[in-house]
Every structure is written in C-alpha cells, then in structure tokens.
C-alpha cells in the first residue's frame, strides 16, 4: 500500500502540473466566460438597476421577427458562403495537390496564404478601395468605356459574399490540399483504368477520400463566417445585417448586456446544432473530421 502510494503520487502530481495550463485555459478563458454570459442572459430588466432571473431575453429573440430573421439570414448566407468556398477551393486544392510539383506547389500555397499576413481589416479595406464607386474597378470600367458613369459595387449581398468567400478560402484550401496530397495517384488511375470517366472518378474516388477534409473545412469556414463581424459590416454597408452585428449593437450601443448575452448563447447553440446536423447528414464523426 505504502509503496504503491509512493510510486503513484509523483506521477499524478506531474500529470496534474502538466495539465494545469490546459485546465486553466479551459476554465478561465472558455468555460467561465460562457457561464457568465449564460448567467447575464437570464436576467431581465425590471426597472433601472433592478434585474430578475427569467427567459424574456430569449423569448424576445423568438418573438421579434427582426432578430430571428437576422439570424436566419446570417445562417443561410454563411451556408451559401461555405458551399461557394468549397466549390472554388476544391479545384484550386486539386491543382496544387495533384497537378503541381516542387516549387510551383509551394509558391501557389504561399500565394493563397499571403493575404492572411495582413489583418482582416486591411484585407477588407483593400476590397473597399477596389469596389467603391470612386474605386479602382469602377474607374477602370469607365476608362475602357464599358460604362458611362461610376458604378457602386459595394454594399450588396454579393459583395458580402465575395468578402466572406475570400477571407475563408485558406481555411478550405489547406485541409483539402493536404488530404488530396495523401490520395495516391494510383487510386485515380485505377478509377480511369476500370472504365470510369472524370465524373465517376471524382464522385466515387476523390470526394470520398477528401470527405473528412471537406467536412472539417466546411465546419471551420461556416463558424468563421457566422462569427465574422468586419466583412459583412464594411462590405455590406447599410444593408449588411449580420447576427454578430446585432450582438455588438446590443452590447455597445444599447448597453443591453442581457439581450446581447442571450444572442451570444443562442448563436453558440444554434450554430453548434447546424454543425451537428451537417455532420449527421454527411455521416461523419466529429472526432474523425477534426483529427
């Protein structure tokens, strides 16, 4: 008993010390803020400085069509952005992983990466310089005589979509490229050899192989897009209407922390639900996709 205790204690202590940073991080920076937010979200304002526990902030979300619609719009736009990102990123990744060799491969990946060396804000302003009415694209079109007057490209849903897809691209390209690289060429050749055409090789061999990367890329892009704030606000202008903006507004311009927290909790839970549904539909397990 004694010896057993002796030999075990240092090990346990060591393990505990090793886990300490992780546990502290989890508790202090992940769990605690969420619990605090949950707590705040459950407080109703009765009168100035007087709050009681209740669900009115949540009821408000479901009864005020404005909030509900904003969320729905955000989620739908995010899903569209995710799908678009996937559609655009797949050929790029395939090209990098399978067509290119050596230096060109690295170069192209770095090219995909470069925009991410500057902050999201700078990237978005870059787009604004290009797309605004007095911007580069509009001036160019006038210069070559395509249009008479200046054209405003900013402040539309399409512009938001452009910005979202652009800023998500890397998070789709990287996992896809590395997964496609791991697909041995002989599988693709075998597909053709056995009589398959491009389409059947793509759907029956390449896609099943890349599925975990597709799903994990989609989850990351969806979450990033849903939680994006700058891009929809700056590129969407007067009609942006993004759910994170609602949260920001509740916290900062309405000082309504209770409502803002409720929105935050709802965003977290509903987006988790969407991801869960996505995993179920694609028959992937979370642990497999994220490994």
């Amino acid at each position: 008993m004694m010896t057993k205790g002796k030999s075990k204690t240092p090990l346990k202590l060591g393990l505990l010390l090793l886990l300490c940073p992780l546990l502290l991080w989890l508790v202090l920076l992940v769990i605690l803020p969420q619990l605090t937010m949950l707590n705040i979200s459950l407080q109703e304002r009765i009168a100035p400085r007087i709050y009681e526990y209740g669900f009115s902030n949540y009821i408000e979300f479901f009864t005020e069509p404005l909030y509900w619609n904003t969320f729905l719009r955000t989620a739908v736009m995010s899903i569209i952005a995710t799908v678009l990102t996937l559609i655009i990123a797949f050929p790029i990744s395939y090209y990098i992983a399978k067509m290119l060799r050596g230096r060109a491969k690295g170069l192209l990946l770095v090219l995909c990466l470069i925009p991410f060396w500057v902050s999201e804000l700078v990237r978005t302003y870059g787009w604004m310089i290009l797309l605004r009415e007095s911007g580069v694209v509009s001036s160019f079109l006038q210069y070559i005589g395509m249009t008479e007057g200046p054209i405003e490209f900013l402040y539309t849903d399409a512009t938001i979509m452009l910005g979202l897809v652009y800023s998500s691209m890397l998070f789709m390209v990287v996992p896809l490229t590395s997964t496609l690289e791991s697909l041995d060429d002989s599988y693709i050749e075998a597909g053709y050899d056995l009589g398959g055409n491009g389409l059947s090789v793509f759907w029956q061999i390449i896609v099943p192989h890349a599925k975990p990367a597709i799903v994990s890329g989609c989850i990351v892009v969806f979450m990033l897009t849903l939680g994006n704030y700058l891009t929809p606000i700056l590129l969407g202008g007067k009609s942006s209407l993004w759910f994170t903006e609602q949260i920001f507004t509740q916290f900062i311009t309405r000082f309504n922390w209770q409502q803002g927290s409720a929105f935050g909790v709802l965003l977290l839970s509903i987006s988790s639900l969407i991801v869960w549904l996505g995993l179920k539909l694609s028959r992937q397990s979370f642990s497999k996709v994220m490994s």
Binding site: P48, E64, L66, Y67, N69, T70, K238, L241, R254, N256
Partner: peptide, 19 residues
C-alpha cells in the same frame, strides 16, 4: 429619460433590417 433608448434601439434595428 431612462428606457427611451430601448424604443429607439428597436426602431434603429428595424430600419437597418429593412430592404
């Protein structure tokens, strides 16, 4: 007066949300 800003807030949200 306290409370008016809640009314205004919703109006602003609705304007923002309108097409």
């Amino acid at each position: 007066p306290a409370g008016l800003e809640i009314i205004e807030g919703k109006v602003l949200d609705r304007v923002k949300a309108a097409k």
